[in-house]
Every structure is written in structure tokens, then in C-alpha cells.
Amino acid sequence: MQRFSSPKHFFEMSAKLIPWFAVSALLLGVYGFYMGLFVAPTDYQQGESYRIIFVHVPAAWMSLFIYVVMAISAAIGLIWQIRLADTIAAASAPIGAWFTFLALVTGSLWGKPMWGTYWVWDARLTSELILLFLYFGYMALQSAIEDQRTADKASGLLAIVGVVNIPIIHYSVEWWNTLHQGATVAKFDKPSMHIDMLIPLLVLAVAAKLFYATMVLVRARNEVLYRDRNRRWVRELIEKL
């Protein structure tokens, strides 16, 4: 475990993994967008506007998924003092924030034609906005605190406490009256969606996860270089560049 979580080992391993993740993300992404825009039928209620679902829902799922990964990594870093886990958490935050932003904006662009408004202060939208602020808070603590260990502890604690928001977002459409529609895919009986709509949605959800896997490794490599900038292995590596 010590060896596998050493930053130097991570740096070598990630270089091998990145191209695989990147290529599969690209292939699935192109296939998913092709299916979503050209093959999936028109929705009988929402017309063509429903096609926003293919970017909105994967982005919203990623905003939650990345937050959970970030909080678990931060917890591992806090409890077992594994520095690489803190690095993964720090590298996840900006990507998660971007996906959250995208989920909010595309949701708003879908809300205007369907609900007649870009924004309402209901439970789903508000809790998703709070998620964006949790990411911002994590990033602010990371950059504001000079000492890296202290920064990891403070931001990690925020990430862990913020996990309470995740079930709130998920169940918000059941617990409160809301304009936002309920779950159509993640429920126990059969998803209430046409198969030609469901396939591109799921393909794009996987593509988004692979994109995150690629980018979190790329960002974590930068983070590792920066954090170990005074160590010999980084010095030797950079002198060769």
C-alpha cells in the first residue's frame, strides 16, 4: 500500500492509464452524442427540447459522483494520512465544480421552455446550487491555506461534512413539492423511458465518468509535481524535461 500510494509510483502508473481512459471517453462520447442527436426519437410531450437531457443528466450525476469520490478520498487522507488520497480529492474539486455548473446551466436552459422560468428556488435546484458552493468552499480552503497538510485537513473536513447534501439532492424531488421531475432511470422498477433514449443517456453517463477519470489523473499529476516540488524525484524528472 505504501508503495502503491507513493507519488512517484502514481506518476508512472497514471501515465499508462490516461491514454486508455481518454480514448474510451472520446469514443463513447462521440457515439453517445450521435445516438442522442440523430437516432433518439422526438419526445411526444417535450418535442426536441428534451434532448438537453443527454447533457443535463450525465452532468448532474457527475456532480454527485465526483463529490462522493472527493469526500471519500479526503476521509482516507484524514484517517490514514495517505497523501495521494488528498491529492485525488484536490484534483477532483474543480472538475466536480464544472460538472455542477453545467448541470445548473443546462437545467436552467431546459426549464425556460418547459416550466417557463430559468430558475425557481425549489429543493432540487437550491440543493444543487449548495453543492456548487461546497466545491467552491473546498477549493477556497485549498488555495487560502499556505501549509499543505493544514489545507488538506480543513478542506477535507468541509468535504466530509458536505456529504449530507448528497442524499438531500437525490431525494429532494420526493421529499418536497417541486417543478423538477422525479427519477426516470435510477428507480427500482423499469425505467420509464424509451430504449432509444435510454441508451445514449447511459452511454454518455459512462463517457462522462471516463472523462473524469482521465482529467482527475491529469490534474493529480500536476498536483503531485507541485506538492513534491522539493523532493529529489521531482527535481530529477523535471531536469530531464
Binding site: T42, G47, E48, S49, R51, I52, V55, H56, V105, T106, L109, W110, K112, P113
Partner: peptide, 11 residues
């Protein structure tokens, strides 16, 4: 896009 071009393509 069935009249929803602005919303769909901006997204």
C-alpha cells in the same frame, strides 16, 4: 430543433 434551437444548442 423543433423551435428549441437556442436552448438545445446553447446547452
Amino acid at each position: 430543433m423543433g423551435g428549441y434551437a437556442v436552448f438545445v444548442w446553447t446547452s
